[in-house]
Design a protein around this nucleic acid. Structure first.
Lengths: 349, 349
DNA sequence: TGATCGTTGACACCGGTTACCAAAATCACT
DNA sequence: AGTGATTTTGGTAACCGGTGTCAACGATCA
């Protein structure tokens, strides 16, 4: 707004121009920019006036060189779910909107031997202020240690409160899964199937815990035949659906550890002419676009991923963000997931 | 691999260290880094040796300052479809994987008055080498002019070959839509409905052209009642489905301008107990995850968005990327979309 | 031997920051 | 009040780690 429109080849004003106009030294201008104390109100005003007049914007490259730190946040991810990454990214962008920060996106190849070396090189080169680690790589302790080692701040995003509140943002998935399963039980379901997430994923473990919790409360148990493996992909949902729905006594409801797999189970149900939700209730997890695009619309757990992006950014670099007071609600950093009822759930016949 | 493991506080080697070790001047090292011609094989080897030994990595911040340009590619987008953005982004990342470049992501608020000012400030601050413009903002000429003005390279991504091959990457959507519709006609469909994309979107216009082309070839026409408005969202698909399938003589096939809307139409069909594909064939566009997650799986047009990301990056910064020769296939830069047959299409009853 | 050419180096510079010092202002005390 | 000690403030120079310019250099050619 205040910035004047400059012609095509209009030079950017530098700190020297500002100093000259304000009649002070570079150093003083620098002090104003960096909000140093030890400054007369008068000089500060004069400098700010000059900055305003010239439309001066400090050159981030020069600052980065001198600070030995770039004004960037790196988003490291290796997530199978594109939507999740993008939503989180959007949240981070929301948070840094009016700051001097920019967002650098960096996918990481979890499988690779060289993963740690790659990330190290990346961080050494880009020197971001901080890094955000998305699950599942947020569960990699070596990565966190690397950040620590390189003096890069970091925040790990997880589905359960991890040990260190300062470095973590998460949601209460376990509780909400339990809530969803309780809803099934309340409707009268007793034979409830489960489609697991991939092994080694904290998110998967949390969801399973919540599921078993609700079952245990109701005195129900999970027969092996009702417990299908999965990897968060559609095809796994198909397999699980085939397995569970071919049983002599199939479940009347199935909880799937994510929406994609739920969509797979639902396809199998359609193909087998099993009425959903009449003959089979299905619940997913993520509230991905898929959840509403399939028919009937999927009951699911909404994971506040975008809000977690905002929160993660605020936790990572509170000192660079405007209006950050609100994050000082203790180290909580656990956001609330919610169970969303749609048409894929009904009482058993 | 070659990089030595450095301790926590291990200083990075600088160009001076390399120069000292190789027994040459800074400038010569700089020349090697920047692949200057004018260099003896001998000196080059010596310097490369020294670089190798020290595990030297040029400091991007310093280069950025001296070059007055950051080694970044900015991805400017304002796309309603997250999946598209992420796939494209993935392609760009593929392309710059082994380069010195990094990717900066920047959403743009198309609606905002200040959009151009915001982008200008962003580009002036970050000084990326180039910018990639995703549709729909790729169609904004003022934005391209701004890049030109600021000396930022740019590539516009579109669904039709735009005028200037050097600045454009696109796909042959029109042809492939026509192909898909021809397939419907070949199956015997005569009453074919159309769900439009949003007005003012080039992609939408292209798809409609392709659709009408195929119809015209077969001597069919598109009654107004069969031509439903849409905005690429699921809800619009619901509305269109309600409208088209309530007609006295409903279409036996519907082409939807994207998958989300196709999913909406399919939901309506399910709700109305209209058999898909028996009583109604549906085709979408995008080959989004939704296309395979819904049941029956959707026939659709696969838009090579990730490949376009690769291509766009290569077109934008060929000189910064390894192995870029392959892009010299003329200014073509038109990638091929493909029609994908799935279960949502069959002959009319 | 001198002119020409490709190769290399010295030095200023990019636009900020920090280290250090000097000047000014404030304070405490005899 | 005068003096020195202490605190604030401003200025200078060096520096962050590269690149551009241009002159000097050595080898090649006529």
């Amino acid at each position: 707004m205040a910035a004047q429109k400059k012609g095509a080849s209009g030079k950017q004003p530098t700190i020297n121009d500002v100093a000259a106009l304000a009649g002070v030294s570079k150093k003083t201008v620098s002090r104003v920019i960096n909000r140093s104390e030890f400054l007369t109100e008068k000089t500060r005003k004069a400098v700010e006036q000059a900055i305003e007049t010239l439309g001066f914007v400090p050159n981030p490259q020069a600052r980065a060189l001198a600070f030995r730190r770039n004004f960037l946040i790196a988003l490291l991810h290796d997530n199978p779910n594109a939507q999740t990454v993008l939503n989180f990214q959007q949240g981070v962008l929301d948070a840094i909107k009016d700051s001097d920060l920019a967002l650098l996106v960096r996918p990481v190849d979890r499988g690779s031997e060289r993963m740690l070396d790659d990330v190290r090189t990346f961080l050494e080169k880009q020197r971001p202020i901080g890094a955000l680690l998305l699950p599942p790589i947020s569960e990699n302790d070596a990565l966190a240690a690397l950040c620590e080692d390189l003096g890069v701040r970091y925040v790990r995003v997880g589905s359960a409160p991890l040990d260190d509140a300062k470095h973590c943002v998460s949601s209460n998935d376990r509780e909400v899964v339990a809530e969803a399963v309780r809803a099934l039980i309340a409707l009268g379901h007793r034979r409830i199937g489960f489609v697991r997430g991939p092994q080694g994923f904290r998110s998967a473990a949390e969801r399973e815990k919540g599921f078993r919790e609700a079952l245990a409360e109701a005195g129900l148990d999970l027969p092996d035949a009702y417990n299908a493996p999965g990897n968060y992909r559609y095809a796994a949902g198909i397999d699980a659906g085939e397995a569970l729905l071919s049983l002599g006594e199939p479940p009347t409801a199935i909880f799937c550890s994510n929406d994609e797999m739920a969509a797979g189970v639902m396809s199998v149900a359609h193909a087998k002419r099993i009425e959903v939700p009449g003959a089979l209730s299905i619940i997913g997890f993520d509230d991905s676009p898929t959840a509403t695009h399939i028919w009937p619309a999927l009951s699911t757990v909404r994971w506040p991923i975008r809000e977690m992006g905002v929160r993660a950014a605020k936790t990572l670099v509170p000192d660079f963000l405007p209006f950050t007071a609100e994050v000082d609600d203790g180290g909580a950093a656990v956001l609330r997931s919610t169970f969303i009822q749609r048409q894929s759930v009904a009482a058993p016949q």
